[in-house]
Design a protein around this nucleic acid. Structure first.
Lengths: 269, 269
DNA sequence: ACAAAAGTGTTCCAGTTACACCCATGC
DNA sequence: GCATGGGTGTAACTGGAACACTTTTGT
């Protein structure tokens, strides 16, 4: 590729990449406790080249012409953690020339993903991957701090939709657990009595009939998220949602289809 | 640029572009009347090459490494109409390989823009540019129909925020006008009495003291949109908004700064 | 029996809806 | 005066917030 002088390069299109903000519910961090006993954790990867060498950054990768954006996001996710996302949505596309800070100009299409609580036990920490609590992030490369703040803001404003909240707990959960998720995310105390009624009234929660003992006291009924066709609004009335969650050919290599891992990504509303 | 065989090209990054869905309030179309006497109009450009030669498409263009996404969106907008946007926001990024339909793979970062009613008099119709009412669109190239549907959906869900609605009328407007905008966009009849109270209660409307005669009857007081610092929520609590509306160097050529045209784009909340 | 969390009932309040009504202006 | 839209008043309805209360379990 021949790019002559500077002004010629400036006229070139920028590079494209995809990044992912992965969010999982974990224990409240010891140093920075919060009112709730859970916090959000985010995995970051350490940069191994300039600029920002040694700083932490969002997982991400390049984009191939024969892959969808979701596929690229999913690949970036896999490069960081074995956890499978239960929710994956496009967040925003950042492309300001100033954000590269000395690197080559880059447009980043950012996704955010939620992974379930049950699975977060294996917070597998590779050498260059580490999980950080949302309220105690290290110095971040590029504008990634801004991006994370935006992702958290989006989560907080979107948490009202039951399907988002349920993606942060296991498939089967008690209302108290779900309540905890809401409090952890909003940072606000929420009246449990009203919360329970509101959730049940939404018609999107299906009792499993089973019970679960949380502490050493009365067991609670468990529920499962059940979409229900009456879910209006929120998402556009057209195919976009299906399109976004088409089966993904995960491996960039030729022939390995593993869509089983993507069962959780099937359109949910 | 040398790209050998097909599989090699598939591994290349796709091209990037920016498209804009421009929305303006205009008269209800004769063939497809609606309950309200206004409808949304959208300018489209005719394609002059394959694929989809002769079909209509959203205005758009390429991306340069030294331009921000907003600058590119603004440039695309200028290529179509002289109208200046009063609102410009990123909508979504589309990148599915299937969307190119025989063309080269392309990632499109789509913006949507609102232009004021007063200015739409000069619906300047160039040979390859035509305005269409939202309810009577022609056959569209690529997935542009989906994109427009998404933009309309977004507008309809966002119209609640007074700042969005006011962007579709002139700087000075009567409550009846604003009411008409709401009805045109939602398609629902809205109780005028309650509407007026709600708007005034929002504290974001400032009386000008002037009056305007609309029909041949009692004149109505006019108002102006006045942000007010109490506007909470809606937008993320960080710089993103400012960043998104930094002064834009419009012309791709070397040195012509014309930021005066962008006064309307200054952050409004 | 007692502690602790699960789960239910009930009141209060604020914001919205529906609709009746008065006001200002042109003809 | 009267027609027409501008503008106000108000009662009924609705959903959420607050909090007292009952139930079920383990020790």
């Amino acid at each position: 590729m021949n790019m002559g002088n500077v002004s010629e390069r400036r006229a070139q299109p920028p590079a494209i990449g995809v990044s992912v903000v992965i969010l999982a519910l974990g224990p409240a961090s010891a140093e920075h406790p919060t009112s709730a006993n859970s916090t959000l954790w985010i995995p970051l990867v350490r940069r191994i080249r300039q600029p920002f060498l040694g700083d932490w950054a969002l997982p991400g990768g390049g984009l191939r012409a024969d892959h969808s954006l979701e596929q690229a996001a999913y690949a970036a996710l896999e490069s960081t953690t074995d956890l499978h996302p239960r929710y994956l949505e496009q967040l925003y596309t950042f492309g300001d020339p100033s954000r590269s800070h000395g690197g080559l100009p880059m447009v980043s299409i950012v996704y955010w993903a939620l992974v379930g609580q049950a699975e977060t036990k294996d917070f597998a920490e590779a050498d260059n991957v580490r999980w950080f609590p949302e309220n105690d992030l290290p110095a971040l490369a590029f504008d990634h701090r801004t991006i994370i703040d935006y992702a958290l803001w989006r989560l907080r404003t979107k948490i009202e939709y039951p399907d988002v909240a349920t993606k942060l707990v296991g498939d089967e959960f008690t209302l108290a657990q779900l309540h905890g998720v809401y409090e952890a995310i909003t940072g606000q105390p929420i009246d449990l009595a009203n919360f329970r009624r509101k959730m049940l009234a939404s018609g999107q929660l299906e009792p499993t009939g089973r019970k679960r003992r949380e502490g050493r006291h009365r067991p609670a009924a468990t529920y499962r998220y059940a979409p229900g066709p009456e879910s209006t609004g929120d998402w556009p009335p057209f195919v976009k949602r299906q399109e976004a969650f088409q089966p993904i050919e995960v491996a960039p290599s030729t022939d390995s289809h593993d869509n089983s891992a993507l069962a959780a990504l099937v359109p949910s509303r």
